[in-house]
Design a protein around this nucleic acid. Sequence first.
DNA 1: CTGTTAGCGCCTTCAT
DNA 2: ATGAAGGCGCTAACAG
Lengths: 347, 347
Amino acid sequence: MAEETVSLALTLKDIAREAGVSLATVDRVLHNRPGVRPDTVRRVQETIARNAFQPHVAAAELARGRARRFAFVMPSGPNPFMQQIEAYLGEMSAWLAARRLSVEMVTTDVFDPSVLAASLETLSGDYDGVAVVALDHPGVRAAINDLVEAGTKVVTLVSDVPSSRRHHYVGIDNIAAGRTAGALVGRLIGQKSGKVAIVAGSQGLRDHAERIFGFNQVMASEFPDLNVLPVLEGRDEDDRSEQLLSRLLGRHADIVGLYNVGAGTQGVASALSGAGREKQVVFVGHDVTALTRRLLLQGVMDAAISQNPGHEARAAVRVLLALARGEPILSEQEKIRIDIVMRDNLP
Amino acid sequence: MAEETVSLALTLKDIAREAGVSLATVDRVLHNRPGVRPDTVRRVQETIARNAFQPHVAAAELARGRARRFAFVMPSGPNPFMQQIEAYLGEMSAWLAARRLSVEMVTTDVFDPSVLAASLETLSGDYDGVAVVALDHPGVRAAINDLVEAGTKVVTLVSDVPSSRRHHYVGIDNIAAGRTAGALVGRLIGQKSGKVAIVAGSQGLRDHAERIFGFNQVMASEFPDLNVLPVLEGRDEDDRSEQLLSRLLGRHADIVGLYNVGAGTQGVASALSGAGREKQVVFVGHDVTALTRRLLLQGVMDAAISQNPGHEARAAVRVLLALARGEPILSEQEKIRIDIVMRDNLP
DNA sequence: CTGTTAGCGCCTTCAT
DNA sequence: ATGAAGGCGCTAACAG
């Protein structure tokens, strides 16, 4: 009735004794440090394996006794999603302090590649790890590579630079997110045919471009009766998004679906209600914020594609920490899922 | 441009010096242990607060040096979702071992209250914490309360016993899950009217009953054109579920929606395909397993309501550990979300 | 190449 | 009511 998984509570010393060597030698083998004869290595490794020995992490941390400094490079604007990530990092402060970790926020204009690159350059050498909401641009890529070169662990957050040498990306698969949005818009529209509008921040942003790509993919292949209109670029600004969309709604009476790829959600919603069409149009956007929560409850928005900002903040810290310590990353745990949030499963 | 959050790396000793007392006294105050004069307590607390002092967890763990034993009481049947939780617990073994924690699986017939209660009784005294997939029944409730009485930390997993004195519930809000399923079925059906079938394991299971309740709630209030048929009780068995549903499909040609509340998914799917109606009926079920993944990809299932089993396993362990150590629980992190999974956001 | 040793910061007797 | 001191398991410097 009971399978087991026991903790033998072996220690380095036990292994040392059993292998007939000293503590220090076991430690060297454990961290594959040089200066041990090959067959001693083998002998020690065998005893370690035979006993399924696991060093006590707490003891190691204590002995190592090194404080780690991480920097988070975030957009300076009033993006609610980014603010949520920052808030969750703040909530972690006790957790961080108890582990002698520090996280510093660096806000910068991540939309200007040279400014972002410059910000990254200033960090070099001062931090064990850097998490950055990155724009995919050659200058930024170079800055990331320089950091990596200098021994800093780098994680891209929310928006990736796949061609760089960053160690890890913490964020969702944006093409899949776009596909998900497309499937939702299409299926929620039902049998009706008509036009579908897309509002994005900019097609120059990698994540936006990828989402649009995924969205169009699904639309083209599965909803031939729906006609996708050219993308409106609202620069994630409320006013501009509202104007553009209002004009579009005015020109097309048969818009039945709407995909808001980025921020500027307030503007998009205003345009819809302004036209009195919030009930006729299936509206899917991104992220659960105070605003999108309200819109979902009101039935103005039908679904939000979301990535859990708390999870994202914690995952970024954990990954940086694991990288800094040379520990393995628990990829299943750190993977960020694409959440579909509707009125009834609002978190 | 840079706000900060520094780690001053204070230690107990620093606090002791600044407060003019010894290490031991600070320690006593820190853990509000008796034997310290009230105003000494205050003085020490003030210095702690003033310096925002956080004891180093690694050092504490090491000094405390106590191994913890946890037991997970799980259903003995071949429920794929439960097997996933067990698998994730297995994957954590290195993590657990490195912290001198042990997790033992105890499988039992959780559907028989007396058997489950007996299983729980045998655990008393041997474990620091117990996670249990619980049936809500007076006998089980009493067994849980006995464990708690004996000082064991108890967490209910997946299925709750709210009226017991369990310390925590790790799982989803099943009423909300049912509502979500209802909203999905209704909205994906679109404007059509017709009948909706429900297949559950048993209405005696609290989680199933709650899901059905939520589902009906939404159906009644928002989809008056859909007519919900009486619940079929398939006991989570494939054969029985298939038979019952096949017969129902035979009797009603106008079934347009189907909600599978529990397991037995294979049987439900077979009944649908057997009738050649897998494309006409909107089919929503629970959990992402190898089977439901396939059904989603094939378009037989339209959506799965899911709770992340990996997250659930880790959260249960973390909560038990925090309870055992007397640490606070990070409720935001440990909350289990209701995930909507469709073909394009399969994890 | 290998071993010895002094801590890391906190907890826990044991004295006082 | 308070303090002193040893030790938890590992790391890192220093000897050899």
